[in-house]
């Protein structure tokens, strides 16, 4: 399981780098297929970028940049959130490592 999670983190990092270079559309199919393979193995990867952040979100470990407030959003994702599906139920196997900021 640990090896697969390490691979998922690498795939996430590659896709993030490609996005920064505006190249991700060329590899969309490949990433969809990789995610499909992970899902077949029972793992679901979620990139929470842009999502609302509250202190009740235990799926992420956050560092707060700037002042903290009620209107926080996730502005950078260092590691994605990974869930494992077992007997139909999901459980968190990797917390996302994120940076959050107040909505601008």
């Amino acid at each position: 399981m640990d090896a697969l999670i390490a691979v998922m983190n690498q795939v996430f990092e590659i896709s993030r780098k490609l996005e920064e270079e505006h190249l991700s559309s060329r590899f969309e199919r490949n990433f969809n297929k990789l995610n499909n393979i992970f899902e077949e193995e029972g793992f679901i990867c979620n990139n929470p970028l842009g999502e609302k952040y509250t202190d009740a979100r235990t799926d992420c470990t956050a560092s707060i940049a700037g002042a903290e407030g009620r209107d926080m959003v996730i502005t950078q994702v260092i590691k994605p959130v990974i869930y494992q599906k077992k007997d139909g139920a999901l459980s968190l196997v990797q917390k996302g490592i994120v940076i959050v900021e107040r909505k601008k």
């Binding site: 202190d55 009740a56 979100r57 235990t58 799926d59 139920a89 999901l90 459980s91 968190l92």
Partner: peptide
């Protein structure tokens, strides 16, 4: 939440 991704405290 049962999967561990949400907790109000």
């Amino acid at each position: 939440r049962a999967d561990g991704g949400f907790d109000t405290g």
